[in-house]
Design a protein around this nucleic acid. Structure first.
Lengths: 332, 332
DNA sequence: TTGTAAGCGTTATCAA
DNA sequence: TTGATAACGCTTACAA
């Protein structure tokens, strides 16, 4: 493996000149640059990332912390982040924790030991220790999707409240009056915002929210399934249900099927977060799609700007879109 | 940020002793270790990854090269790889290329510049330049899913032929005789193996393969859609179709719907690769599931073993499983 | 425009 | 069992 010295020797210059030439600094004479480039090429010279990181004080690695990379929402965030990072010749380290504490700790250590130049995190509100450690961390930080209480860092998110309010309004316009919501933990700000939109739509429609129809604290397929089962056991049943994320939707859908009910005839189903197969499900699921890919890009962008020295960066709010399909219909 | 010198000073030892103590080497006196640990803890000392990498000659970063992290198959591979890597305190850099050449080049550079200690790759056969560059690379390499021609490296894969053969046999047992296959590019060894299983099942059943029913070179949803449309235009139509991967299946499914045909009454559909929503599709799709997570773990495992100096590592063949659902039925 | 030389923070070698 | 010290390979003042 050729080093910078070999290149310097072959080109007949000093190592300092090699560095400058290869970075295309204007202070180097064109002829010199040419010679250095030729030498580097001939020796297959690739500068050592470790040496560079050590010398410059930071790496070109961005970290992305997500609960579950298999969840397509996060996968798309990852793809967006990675694409944007690659444009700046940065790489992404994706850590998918499954809420694994040990893994969280490892990631934080990596931020401290300089493996990572910056971190984008989708944190779970419950984990106070992690949150606190995060805020004490050196280096750029950006939050994606949600902000744990007390964490001061730019956030990339969707306008949850607005889009939910509009979507639920559509339900009222169809004639629904008993609309249920399967919401997440109350310390998820996303859940709160979506719930808030849900309530506002009720106010808009002059309908009081039936609190028993709002189920808090549900997560994942299991949570969605359980909440839906409970909702279906009520009398009278809700005529529509709004699920606060993709996995919860899947669980709810299964529960509805098991109960032998028809969508949307017996009950309408509205999902937050789209999935690629939702159009093929029976029936195709109407969903509020978040611009996950763009959110990932925006996160990388913000990290890069922070690394460039910019401070006081604002939150970035991206629009979500209602994608009408067949799971919404007027109540019987 | 405290460095090793600060710790050494506080503990009253040399930097060499600090290193040894923190790595728990037996040559350090217990009392000394204790003192060093206390000092490190008090100063919040975290060794610099860059300095360590420079000094040791390699990082603790594993690279995973996949075509598309949003495809759940690869996402699961990534999760498996990452979990296994984390156990050894390694991180994973995921590069999702979308067949982007520039991105491929970047990743190779990272392998050369020492950013990555090893690389797991799911390469696309078509890209000879990349393949060749890969084989010329320093450092451990492991192939996942498929092996491009001429690349000598351990491979983690599924027993494609066997599982396909058995699944297609099931189709014959149901009474099908005109079974189509939407296969991938002929330079994908996975496509070849699955096709081979398809042919073997025909031989087992004493049925000659109708070559017009075998469509080569299709990839992605678009490819699946197009191939299926062509197949449905044939007269007589096939009574069953086998799709060689998940995206192709989705495309084929859409084409069947557009043609207004019923599954499985008009045509049976068998997928290679499962997806989490396949059970919810109309009808639920019968699929051959690959142990993607385990494949990712195995890839990391092999990389780690190579880093530990092991050579001559064999391919790892994992079993796939047929998951019966409702998209298969006897022909009319 | 180019060169010299001092870091950067570990680890590893050799002595003690 | 511990300590000095020389790498590791690049970047960057500072000089020339």
């Amino acid at each position: 493996m050729a080093g910078i010295r070999d290149v310097a020797r072959l080109a007949g210059v000093s190592t300092a000149t090699v560095t400058r030439a290869l970075r295309d600094e204007p202070s180097v004479a064109p002829k010199t640059k040419e010679r250095v480039r030729a030498a580097a090429l001939r020796l297959d010279y690739v500068p050592s990332a470790a040496a560079r990181a050590l010398s410059q004080g930071h790496s070109t690695l961005l970290g992305l912390f997500v609960p579950d990379i298999v969840n397509p929402f996060y996968a798309e965030v990852a793809q967006g982040m990675e694409d944007r990072a690659a444009e700046a010749r940065f790489h992404c380290v994706i850590a998918s924790s499954h809420l694994n504490r040990e893994r969280e700790r490892q990631l934080l250590t990596s931020l401290q030991d300089g493996t990572l130049a910056g971190l984008a995190a989708t944190t779970v509100g419950t984990d106070e220790a992690f949150t606190q450690a995060l805020s004490a961390m050196p280096g750029p930080l950006v939050l994606v999707d949600r902000r744990p209480r007390g964490l001061k860092a730019p956030l990339v998110r969707t306008d949850n409240r607005k889009v939910t309010r509009e979507a639920i309004r559509g339900l009222f316009e169809m004639g629904h009056t008993r609309i249920a919501m399967i919401s997440g933990p109350q310390d998820f700000d996303t859940a709160c915002q979506r719930l808030s939109g849900f309530r506002m739509a009720h106010r808009d429609a002059g309908v009081r929210v039936t609190e028993q129809l709002v189920r808090h604290g549900h997560l994942g397929e299991t949570g969605g399934h359980q909440a839906m089962t409970e909702l279906l056991a009520m009398d009278p049943r809700p005529t529509a249900v709004f699920c606060f994320n993709n996995l919860v939707t899947v669980g709810a859908l299964k529960a509805i099927r098991e109960a032998g009910l028809a969508i949307p005839a017996d009950i309408s189903l509205l999902a937050f977060d789209d999935m690629s197969l939702f159009p093929l499900v029976d029936p195709p699921i109407t969903a509020i799609a978040q611009p996950a890919y763009e959110m990932g890009r925006a996160a990388a962008e913000i990290l890069l700007r922070q690394l460039a020295g910019e401070t006081g960066i604002d939150d970035r709010v991206l629009p979500a879109t209602l994608i009408p399909r067949a799971s919404l219909g007027p109540p019987r």
